[in-house]
Protein backbone atom coordinates (compact mmCIF):
# COMPACT_ATOMS: atom_id res chain seq x y z
CA UNK A 1 0.00 0.00 0.00
CA UNK A 2 2.82 2.31 0.92
CA UNK A 3 4.61 1.24 -2.24
CA UNK A 4 1.60 2.13 -4.33
CA UNK A 5 1.37 5.55 -2.70
CA UNK A 6 5.02 6.32 -3.41
CA UNK A 7 4.61 5.08 -6.96
CA UNK A 8 1.60 7.29 -7.38
CA UNK A 9 3.57 10.25 -6.06
CA UNK A 10 6.33 9.45 -8.55
CA UNK A 11 3.78 9.31 -11.31
CA UNK A 12 2.41 12.68 -10.23
CA UNK A 13 5.95 14.03 -10.23
CA UNK A 14 6.43 12.86 -13.80
CA UNK A 15 3.09 14.30 -14.86
CA UNK A 16 3.73 17.46 -12.91
CA UNK A 17 6.05 18.96 -15.51
CA UNK A 18 3.58 18.09 -18.24
CA UNK A 19 0.55 19.61 -16.54
CA UNK A 20 -0.41 23.20 -16.85
CA UNK A 21 0.22 25.25 -13.72
CA UNK A 22 -1.48 28.65 -13.53
CA UNK A 23 0.89 31.32 -12.33
CA UNK A 24 0.06 32.73 -8.91
CA UNK A 25 -2.61 35.42 -9.18
CA UNK A 26 -3.13 34.85 -12.88
CA UNK A 27 -6.54 33.23 -12.69
CA UNK A 28 -9.73 35.24 -12.77
CA UNK A 29 -13.41 34.41 -12.87
CA UNK A 30 -15.48 35.79 -15.72
CA UNK A 31 -19.22 35.20 -15.47
CA UNK A 32 -18.56 32.30 -13.13
CA UNK A 33 -16.07 30.68 -15.50
CA UNK A 34 -12.46 30.32 -14.44
CA UNK A 35 -10.10 31.97 -16.91
CA UNK A 36 -6.33 31.53 -16.64
CA UNK A 37 -4.49 34.30 -18.39
CA UNK A 38 -0.99 33.10 -17.59
CA UNK A 39 0.24 29.62 -16.82
CA UNK A 40 3.17 27.33 -17.53
CA UNK A 41 1.39 26.17 -20.68
CA UNK A 42 0.73 29.70 -21.94
CA UNK A 43 4.32 30.64 -21.04
CA UNK A 44 5.50 27.65 -23.10
CA UNK A 45 3.42 28.84 -26.05
CA UNK A 46 4.89 32.32 -25.70
CA UNK A 47 8.35 30.77 -25.47
CA UNK A 48 7.69 28.83 -28.66
CA UNK A 49 6.52 32.00 -30.40
CA UNK A 50 9.50 33.92 -29.03
CA UNK A 51 11.87 31.31 -30.44
CA UNK A 52 10.05 30.76 -33.72
CA UNK A 53 9.55 34.38 -34.76
CA UNK A 54 13.18 35.60 -34.68
CA UNK A 55 14.61 32.28 -35.82
CA UNK A 56 12.32 31.92 -38.80
CA UNK A 57 12.59 35.58 -39.74
CA UNK A 58 16.37 35.32 -39.65
CA UNK A 59 16.38 32.12 -41.69
CA UNK A 60 13.82 33.56 -44.11
CA UNK A 61 16.05 36.57 -44.64
CA UNK A 62 18.92 34.25 -45.54
CA UNK A 63 16.69 32.01 -47.63
CA UNK A 64 17.53 32.00 -51.31
CA UNK A 65 16.55 29.89 -54.28
CA UNK A 66 19.56 27.74 -53.36
CA UNK A 67 19.70 28.03 -49.57
CA UNK A 68 22.87 27.60 -47.52
CA UNK A 69 23.63 26.72 -43.93
CA UNK A 70 20.73 27.05 -41.49
CA UNK A 71 18.39 28.13 -44.26
CA UNK A 72 18.59 24.55 -45.50
CA UNK A 73 16.63 23.44 -42.42
CA UNK A 74 13.91 25.93 -43.25
CA UNK A 75 14.01 24.81 -46.86
CA UNK A 76 13.52 21.19 -45.79
CA UNK A 77 10.54 22.15 -43.61
CA UNK A 78 8.93 24.32 -46.28
CA UNK A 79 9.42 21.77 -49.05
CA UNK A 80 8.20 18.99 -46.73
CA UNK A 81 5.00 20.86 -45.90
CA UNK A 82 4.46 21.73 -49.56
CA UNK A 83 5.16 18.28 -50.99
CA UNK A 84 3.96 16.01 -48.20
CA UNK A 85 1.04 18.00 -46.82
CA UNK A 86 -0.26 20.81 -49.01
CA UNK A 87 0.09 19.31 -52.46
CA UNK A 88 -1.41 15.85 -51.79
CA UNK A 89 -4.40 17.45 -50.03
CA UNK A 90 -4.91 20.63 -52.04
CA UNK A 91 -3.30 19.96 -55.41
CA UNK A 92 -2.65 23.09 -57.43
CA UNK A 93 -4.16 25.29 -54.67
CA UNK A 94 -1.32 24.28 -52.34
CA UNK A 95 0.47 27.62 -52.48
CA UNK A 96 -2.63 29.53 -51.40
CA UNK A 97 -2.78 27.68 -48.07
CA UNK A 98 0.95 27.17 -47.57
CA UNK A 99 1.47 30.07 -45.11
CA UNK A 100 -1.39 28.81 -42.91
CA UNK A 101 -0.17 25.22 -43.01
CA UNK A 102 3.46 26.20 -42.40
CA UNK A 103 2.50 28.28 -39.38
CA UNK A 104 0.34 25.45 -38.07
CA UNK A 105 3.12 22.90 -38.55
CA UNK A 106 5.90 24.86 -36.87
CA UNK A 107 3.63 26.00 -34.03
CA UNK A 108 2.34 22.52 -33.23
CA UNK A 109 5.82 21.05 -33.62
CA UNK A 110 7.28 23.70 -31.35
CA UNK A 111 4.59 23.12 -28.71
CA UNK A 112 5.11 19.35 -28.87
CA UNK A 113 8.87 19.70 -28.50
CA UNK A 114 8.90 22.29 -25.73
CA UNK A 115 7.31 19.74 -23.39
CA UNK A 116 10.29 17.44 -23.78
CA UNK A 117 12.69 20.10 -22.49
CA UNK A 118 13.20 19.94 -18.69
CA UNK A 119 12.33 23.61 -18.26
CA UNK A 120 10.22 22.95 -15.15
CA UNK A 121 13.28 21.90 -13.18
CA UNK A 122 15.14 25.04 -14.27
CA UNK A 123 12.34 27.41 -13.31
CA UNK A 124 11.87 25.59 -10.01
CA UNK A 125 15.53 25.91 -9.11
CA UNK A 126 15.43 29.61 -10.06
CA UNK A 127 12.29 30.10 -7.94
CA UNK A 128 10.43 31.70 -10.83
CA UNK A 129 6.92 30.83 -12.04
CA UNK A 130 6.84 27.53 -13.92
CA UNK A 131 7.44 27.31 -17.68
CA UNK A 132 7.65 24.23 -19.83
CA UNK A 133 4.36 22.36 -19.76
CA UNK A 134 3.48 20.67 -23.04
CA UNK A 135 0.82 23.01 -24.43
CA UNK A 136 -0.54 20.34 -26.77
CA UNK A 137 -1.14 18.10 -23.76
CA UNK A 138 -3.78 20.64 -22.65
CA UNK A 139 -7.21 19.84 -24.04
CA UNK A 140 -8.32 23.44 -24.51
CA UNK A 141 -5.17 24.29 -26.47
CA UNK A 142 -5.83 21.36 -28.81
CA UNK A 143 -9.43 22.58 -29.07
CA UNK A 144 -8.21 26.03 -30.02
CA UNK A 145 -5.93 24.61 -32.71
CA UNK A 146 -8.78 22.53 -34.10
CA UNK A 147 -10.92 25.67 -33.94
CA UNK A 148 -8.38 27.48 -36.11
CA UNK A 149 -8.73 24.73 -38.69
CA UNK A 150 -12.51 24.97 -38.56
CA UNK A 151 -12.35 28.76 -38.80
CA UNK A 152 -10.15 28.44 -41.88
CA UNK A 153 -12.54 25.93 -43.44
CA UNK A 154 -15.57 28.11 -42.78
CA UNK A 155 -13.97 31.40 -43.81
CA UNK A 156 -12.48 30.01 -47.01
CA UNK A 157 -15.66 28.05 -47.72
CA UNK A 158 -17.79 31.19 -47.39
CA UNK A 159 -15.38 33.14 -49.56
CA UNK A 160 -15.39 30.55 -52.30
CA UNK A 161 -19.16 30.10 -52.19
CA UNK A 162 -19.62 33.89 -52.38
CA UNK A 163 -17.30 34.38 -55.33
CA UNK A 164 -18.66 31.35 -57.17
CA UNK A 165 -22.26 32.49 -56.77
CA UNK A 166 -21.46 36.09 -57.72
CA UNK A 167 -19.62 34.92 -60.80
CA UNK A 168 -22.37 32.50 -61.78
CA UNK A 169 -25.35 34.79 -61.31
CA UNK A 170 -23.78 38.20 -61.84
CA UNK A 171 -24.94 39.36 -58.40
CA UNK A 172 -22.79 41.90 -56.55
CA UNK A 173 -20.27 40.27 -54.22
CA UNK A 174 -21.80 41.84 -51.10
CA UNK A 175 -25.21 40.43 -51.98
CA UNK A 176 -23.76 37.00 -52.68
CA UNK A 177 -21.89 37.21 -49.36
CA UNK A 178 -25.26 37.47 -47.58
CA UNK A 179 -26.12 34.03 -48.89
CA UNK A 180 -22.62 32.58 -48.33
CA UNK A 181 -23.48 30.36 -45.31
CA UNK A 182 -26.48 28.86 -47.09
CA UNK A 183 -24.58 28.40 -50.32
CA UNK A 184 -21.65 26.77 -48.58
CA UNK A 185 -23.82 24.40 -46.54
CA UNK A 186 -25.83 23.57 -49.66
CA UNK A 187 -22.58 22.89 -51.51
CA UNK A 188 -21.52 20.44 -48.80
CA UNK A 189 -24.40 18.06 -49.57
CA UNK A 190 -23.73 15.49 -52.28
CA UNK A 191 -25.79 15.94 -55.42
CA UNK A 192 -28.78 13.59 -55.50
CA UNK A 193 -30.86 13.74 -58.69
CA UNK A 194 -34.64 13.94 -58.80
CA UNK A 195 -37.17 14.28 -56.00
CA UNK A 196 -34.92 12.39 -53.61
CA UNK A 197 -32.44 15.23 -53.93
CA UNK A 198 -35.07 17.75 -52.81
CA UNK A 199 -36.08 15.62 -49.84
CA UNK A 200 -32.58 14.58 -48.82
CA UNK A 201 -30.82 17.85 -49.60
CA UNK A 202 -31.33 19.52 -46.23
CA UNK A 203 -30.65 16.48 -44.01
CA UNK A 204 -27.56 15.62 -46.02
CA UNK A 205 -26.27 19.19 -45.82
CA UNK A 206 -26.82 19.24 -42.07
CA UNK A 207 -25.14 15.88 -41.73
CA UNK A 208 -22.14 17.16 -43.66
CA UNK A 209 -22.06 20.26 -41.45
CA UNK A 210 -21.97 18.06 -38.38
CA UNK A 211 -19.25 16.06 -40.16
CA UNK A 212 -17.09 19.16 -40.50
CA UNK A 213 -17.34 19.87 -36.77
CA UNK A 214 -16.82 16.20 -35.91
CA UNK A 215 -13.68 16.02 -38.01
CA UNK A 216 -12.23 19.07 -36.27
CA UNK A 217 -13.25 17.58 -32.92
CA UNK A 218 -11.35 14.41 -33.84
CA UNK A 219 -8.33 16.57 -34.66
CA UNK A 220 -8.42 17.92 -31.13
CA UNK A 221 -8.79 14.51 -29.47
CA UNK A 222 -6.09 12.91 -31.63
CA UNK A 223 -3.47 15.52 -30.82
CA UNK A 224 -4.33 15.68 -27.13
CA UNK A 225 -4.39 11.90 -26.64
CA UNK A 226 -1.15 11.30 -28.49
CA UNK A 227 0.72 13.96 -26.60
CA UNK A 228 -0.53 12.83 -23.21
CA UNK A 229 0.11 9.14 -23.98
CA UNK A 230 3.89 9.48 -24.21
CA UNK A 231 4.08 11.14 -20.83
CA UNK A 232 1.75 8.55 -19.34
CA UNK A 233 4.01 5.80 -20.62
CA UNK A 234 7.07 7.49 -19.12
CA UNK A 235 5.26 7.87 -15.80
CA UNK A 236 4.33 4.20 -15.75
CA UNK A 237 7.90 3.17 -16.45
CA UNK A 238 9.32 5.36 -13.72
CA UNK A 239 6.71 3.95 -11.38
CA UNK A 240 8.18 0.50 -12.01
CA UNK A 241 11.52 1.54 -10.49
CA UNK A 242 9.86 2.94 -7.39
CA UNK A 243 7.59 -0.08 -6.97
CA UNK A 244 10.51 -2.49 -7.28
CA UNK A 245 12.50 -0.36 -4.84
CA UNK A 246 9.74 -0.80 -2.29
CA UNK A 247 10.15 -4.57 -2.40
CA UNK A 248 13.94 -4.82 -2.33
CA UNK A 249 16.87 -2.68 -3.33
CA UNK A 250 18.25 -5.57 -5.34
CA UNK A 251 15.11 -5.61 -7.48
CA UNK A 252 15.58 -1.95 -8.26
CA UNK A 253 19.19 -2.70 -9.14
CA UNK A 254 18.01 -5.11 -11.81
CA UNK A 255 14.93 -3.23 -12.94
CA UNK A 256 16.42 0.27 -12.90
CA UNK A 257 18.82 0.05 -15.89
CA UNK A 258 16.14 -1.53 -18.07
CA UNK A 259 13.60 1.08 -17.10
CA UNK A 260 16.03 3.94 -17.67
CA UNK A 261 17.01 2.50 -21.06
CA UNK A 262 13.34 2.12 -21.92
CA UNK A 263 12.66 5.69 -20.76
CA UNK A 264 15.40 7.00 -23.05
CA UNK A 265 13.85 4.99 -25.86
CA UNK A 266 10.41 6.41 -25.03
CA UNK A 267 11.88 9.92 -24.95
CA UNK A 268 13.32 9.35 -28.39
CA UNK A 269 9.97 8.01 -29.45
CA UNK A 270 8.36 11.15 -28.05
CA UNK A 271 10.63 13.19 -30.29
CA UNK A 272 9.37 11.20 -33.22
CA UNK A 273 5.79 11.46 -32.00
CA UNK A 274 6.17 15.24 -31.68
CA UNK A 275 7.08 15.50 -35.35
CA UNK A 276 4.57 12.89 -36.40
CA UNK A 277 1.68 14.53 -34.60
CA UNK A 278 2.56 17.94 -36.01
CA UNK A 279 2.57 16.33 -39.45
CA UNK A 280 -0.71 14.49 -38.88
CA UNK A 281 -2.48 17.54 -37.45
CA UNK A 282 -1.36 19.75 -40.33
CA UNK A 283 -2.03 17.10 -42.95
CA UNK A 284 -5.55 16.44 -41.68
CA UNK A 285 -6.22 20.19 -41.55
CA UNK A 286 -5.05 20.48 -45.15
CA UNK A 287 -7.16 17.49 -46.11
CA UNK A 288 -10.30 18.98 -44.53
CA UNK A 289 -9.59 22.27 -46.28
CA UNK A 290 -9.26 20.41 -49.54
CA UNK A 291 -12.40 18.41 -48.83
CA UNK A 292 -14.69 21.23 -47.76
CA UNK A 293 -13.28 24.25 -49.58
CA UNK A 294 -11.45 23.24 -52.73
CA UNK A 295 -13.36 20.13 -53.76
CA UNK A 296 -16.24 20.38 -56.24
CA UNK A 297 -19.23 18.86 -54.45
Amino acid sequence: MVGMTVASETSNLIFDHVQDHPWPGCTVEVLGVKVTWMSSGIASMLLVAAVLIPTLLLLARRWRATPRGGANVLDVIVVFVRDMIARPALGDKAYRYLPLLLTMFVFVLGMNLVGILPLGIVTESLHVPPVGATPTAILTVCAALAGVTLLAIVAMGFRKATLHFAHKTGWPVWAAALLAPLLWVKGLAPKVPGAAGVVLGVPLALLELVGVAAKCFSLMIRLFANMIAGHALLAVMMMLIVMSLQKAVVNAFYVGPFVIAASVAVDLMELMVAGLQAYIFTFLSAMFLGLYVESEH
Binding site: T36, S39, I42, M45, L46, I138, T140, A144, L145
Partner: peptide, 15 residues
Protein backbone atom coordinates in the same frame (compact mmCIF):
# COMPACT_ATOMS: atom_id res chain seq x y z
CA UNK B 1 -4.72 18.50 -18.52
CA UNK B 2 -8.04 20.00 -19.47
CA UNK B 3 -7.17 23.67 -19.02
CA UNK B 4 -9.72 26.42 -19.44
CA UNK B 5 -10.81 29.06 -21.93
CA UNK B 6 -7.73 31.15 -21.06
CA UNK B 7 -5.31 28.68 -22.61
CA UNK B 8 -7.55 28.29 -25.67
CA UNK B 9 -7.72 32.04 -26.27
CA UNK B 10 -3.97 32.34 -25.68
CA UNK B 11 -3.31 29.55 -28.19
CA UNK B 12 -5.52 31.23 -30.82
CA UNK B 13 -3.97 34.66 -30.23
CA UNK B 14 -0.42 33.34 -30.37
CA UNK B 15 -1.24 31.36 -33.49
Amino acid sequence: NVGDIGQAVAAILIF
